[in-house]
């Protein structure tokens, strides 16, 4: 899978990194985040954009909890955060797609032609607000991000598109650069080393997706040992239509519409006593995350999945309510003061 991902996005990631070379080289490193207030305390909350975010009062739970640690959000969850008056301490972006990702920031260039060209946002299940009246919701998001940009930091991967980098600059976000680990850094002529040589910034093992990248950044860069997660489903609710899934068009092309059901795996979540289904890519994200979580746990890092849905459970992960995570985070603060 690592090689498949590299084949699929490696070339585009490198092209973007070359375009971003000067900005990344001369800009701040994600390691500089260790010198900010984000590094204080040992708890952080990661907000990803899975469908569970919208199926419960996640924003209400976060606000009512009194959680005071840094909130690290995927770019795809940023709109949800801002609509709910939650300004992330740090946003993370990595996917190199030239047109899609900037939509999560509000795309100044969006028009009816662009919407007709790509049906992704009309289908996706991550943020229902993006599905209807796309021009109007884009206008609203442009305003929200313009307003909150100066109060947000963003960890931008060198693989990010020109449109995303430009949008970050024009909104006044504070940018911190990193490189995605595209392959083994021990390979002398590998892509990861090429990226590092281009701009000198550290490579982060991003787990294949931006949500996992947030979690890695929380412990590997900010040194957090208690990390809560919401919105990380890596799966779909049973009532989701296949057309709404992330890779619908690709799977139809591979199998034909009549056989598309064969592409999905059904997984029972024993904590919720509920079934979810997932596709090959999301399933791989889950397996990669479990591998990373287990290793992080061996280093004393606790991962609290408070998503309330989905298939991310297993060794190294506490599948708990948000209240339980908030209590654990608060306990940490108390014990620190006592110590």
């Amino acid at each position: 899978m690592e090689r498949y991902t590299l084949d699929r996005v490696g070339g585009l990631a490198l092209d973007n990194a070359r375009f971003n070379q000067v900005a990344a080289r001369d800009g701040a490193s994600i390691l500089a985040l260790r010198e900010t207030e984000l590094a204080a305390g040992d708890a952080a909350l990661v907000i990803a954009a899975g469908p569970s975010l919208h199926r419960q009062d996640t924003a209400g739970m976060i606000k009512a909890s009194g959680f005071r640690g840094p909130i690290i959000a995927t770019e795809s969850a940023m709109a949800w955060c801002l609509r709910n008056d939650i300004v992330p301490s740090l946003v993370v972006t990595v996917d190199p797609h030239r047109e899609r990702i900037v939509r999560w920031f509000g795309d100044p260039e969006l028009d009816a032609t662009a919407i007709a060209r790509d049906d992704y946002y009309a289908r996706q299940d991550m943020d229902p607000n993006f599905r209807f009246n796309q021009l109007e919701s884009n206008r609203e998001l442009l305003g929200l991000v313009n307003q909150s940009g100066p109060r947000m930091r963003i960890a931008v991967a060198s693989s990010a598109s020109q449109a995303v980098v430009k949008r970050c600059a024009e909104t006044g976000m504070s940018v911190y650069w990193w490189n995605p680990m595209l392959d083994d850094y021990d390979a002398a002529e590998g892509f990861s080393r090429q990226l590092h040589r281009l701009n000198g910034k550290p490579c982060l093992n991003a787990g294949g997706n931006v949500g996992s990248a947030c979690w890695v950044l929380a412990h590997a860069v900010l040194g957090k040992t208690k990390i809560g997660i919401v919105g990380m489903d890596f799966s779909y609710y049973g009532e989701t239509s296949y057309r709404e899934t992330q890779y619908y068009n690709e799977l139809v092309e591979m199998l034909g519409a009549e056989r598309i059901a064969e592409a999905f795996v059904h997984i029972h979540n024993p904590y919720l006593r509920r079934d979810f289904f997932t596709d090959p890519a999301y399933y791989w994200y889950r397996m990669a995350f479990l591998e990373m979580a287990e290793q992080a746990a061996a280093d004393g890092i606790r991962t609290y999945n408070c998503t309330g849905g989905g298939i991310l459970f297993g060794s190294g992960i506490d599948f708990v309510s948000f209240a339980e995570f908030a209590a654990a985070a608060a306990d940490t603060k108390v014990s620190k003061v006592q110590g």
Binding site: D7, V9, Y185, P202, A206, G208, L251, P280
Partner: peptide, 24 residues
């Protein structure tokens, strides 16, 4: 599975069994 993963890939890299952070 191989065909699906080749087509879908991930959003970005993951390198199994390596460090989380490599700074050179």
């Amino acid at each position: 599975e191989r065909a699906a993963l080749a087509r879908l890939g991930g959003s970005i890299g993951y390198v199994s069994r390596k460090k989380f952070l490599w700074s050179g």
